[in-house]
Design a protein around this nucleic acid. Sequence first.
DNA 1: CCGATTTCGTAGATCGGTCTATTTTTTTGT
DNA 2: ACAAAAAAATAGACCGATCTACGAAATCGG
Lengths: 344, 344
Amino acid sequence: MSKSGGATIEDVAREAGVSRAAVSKVIRNAYGVSPAMRDRVNAAIKMLDYRPSVAARAMRGVSFTLGIELPGISNPFFSKIVAGATRALQHTQYQLIIAPATGDDSDEGVRALGALADRQVDGIIAISPLVTSEWLENLSRKVPVVMLGRHGDAHSYDSVFGDDAEGTRLVMEHLFHLRHRRIVHLTRSEEVTRPGSGNPHAVRLEQYVARMREAGFGDDIRVARTGLTEESARLDTLALLDQEVPTAIFAGNDDLALGALRAIDEFGLTSADVSVVGYDDIDIASHPAVSLTSVNQSGEAMGEQAIRLLLERIGGRVESSSFRVRPELRVRHSTRPVPTSQKS
Amino acid sequence: MSKSGGATIEDVAREAGVSRAAVSKVIRNAYGVSPAMRDRVNAAIKMLDYRPSVAARAMRGVSFTLGIELPGISNPFFSKIVAGATRALQHTQYQLIIAPATGDDSDEGVRALGALADRQVDGIIAISPLVTSEWLENLSRKVPVVMLGRHGDAHSYDSVFGDDAEGTRLVMEHLFHLRHRRIVHLTRSEEVTRPGSGNPHAVRLEQYVARMREAGFGDDIRVARTGLTEESARLDTLALLDQEVPTAIFAGNDDLALGALRAIDEFGLTSADVSVVGYDDIDIASHPAVSLTSVNQSGEAMGEQAIRLLLERIGGRVESSSFRVRPELRVRHSTRPVPTSQKS
DNA sequence: CCGATTTCGTAGATCGGTCTATTTTTTTGT
DNA sequence: ACAAAAAAATAGACCGATCTACGAAATCGG
């Protein structure tokens, strides 16, 4: 019981009076062990409280570790994904580890993904929207990868995503139904919404524009850019309101929507003046004090499916596969009909 | 560029025309390398896009990985801790990995901590309140450990915690000042608040009781138990309100406070009827729609200090050390004076 | 009952680094 | 210019598992 860790496979072998290879077979329950030997080895393992070194195992192939790369863990939607993934791994011998990418630039995502790869994880779930598909293709040549959120088929990695086009359609139809037409879309930087990238925010933006045009509101299309956090959304919404007050704001996600709500409050307005819709339906959205209309897409299901795809790959699947989560609109009090006086 | 990973130190050595040991020296920048050799090796490293295998390194001692064990990542306060820790590790060669413990029983915490230990991390930040100090002492014989949140001095591991006694004092004085005396404390299970355990919730409970007694409200002491989540807090608060409506609820943390607020709303009451105080001051607490009075203790600072202590230990410190964060009360609209009609 | 199979068990190479001990080369002092 | 000292570079053991190849024991079939 020295500082440098516990018993090794060697110790167990000695204790049980067998060879290292025998112990190895037992713990992997491989073929070629007699019941008698299995019992003796298991007894020795229990006695010495032996735990196989993950590092040593990793050197020979498997680490029984799956990694998930997250651009910060502050977004509650990610918590759901992790919760789903963790649950899917219960009672397997795999352990999930999370590598947080500090910022939102592509370098940080790459750094975190690299860190996971360096640690020989057996599979990786990637979320950062800014990591290029080429980079992921490359990574997936070494280790199974599931890209979470991004649309489009990849050759060598799997995908799990929500149907952002459908979700956005639900949002826009809801707003149109409430007679909104001066609808601003509050979204992330151009980098994140690069057309054709397949990123969630890119698809939502495209659909927003398409639906506005289709409804004949092409002239009312307004896209406001902001950062990653609620705070940046608050500031940019304040700037927006200073210029022109729309009847509704469709935010790229709930965090941004919360920032918008904050700004609207600070500006002395309410949901009666400016409706707000979010995306993801994080827990707080349903809180009566907030009551934010949002699009629910089960993060748990996404995490769970991502793990399933990873385990399938580890199990030998070679063709790439994907899973799409169906979104549902949750209508709450943050969206109201356009006051007749304001109808433009 | 095969499936099984990239270049090894051997490849680099061959490319640069030097020995493995030489390359090893360069990447660790150890003593005994001529500038000329350093350049050639670095060139080879860049050319082959070489990255040292963490697993192989771990076998010989260091993994350049620090682990943090979290009882689920849904609590936003934990996000702050992680953010602080991640920031503190910027520009070091260490990488933070998070091991989520699914549930809230002590087994899960132990499992996650064990998973980190198995992966030979160079240091561990532990949060689960249910893991015993003995177990941690034992763990800390193998790897540096920082316990986050729990009070009390440990012999062999370090601690970072908020001053929960002081924080609770601030809360109670604030409530007393608003003329509250029928104050319910909504906290976690007995297991988590075991007297003398030093757990945050245990200290808050103790102080709540002490302050109530001191103020002469001993007869009004009411402790309501609930689970880990906002949802369980909502249900248990509903049950509580069904029996007797207090003038204030002091919740063990903001998540529970949010659940209480939800229940109060569903019960047809408002903050004017029942004041609510939380703890941790998570972001949403300051949102105007929520405006929850809470105790701020910088999670970022806690994460940052935990990392500092870990790096110090790795650097050779042997005496145990600790860091205390000073709490501040943030008064918002969820606490109001007791309506005169209700004064008991 | 004896050769052929099958089952059980082990020896030893291997993964990719680190690090000590040792050798080779360069520098230094006189 | 040459021995001593310092610096540079290397060989090879080592970490703790996995896994192939092979030997020994048990079982089988006729």
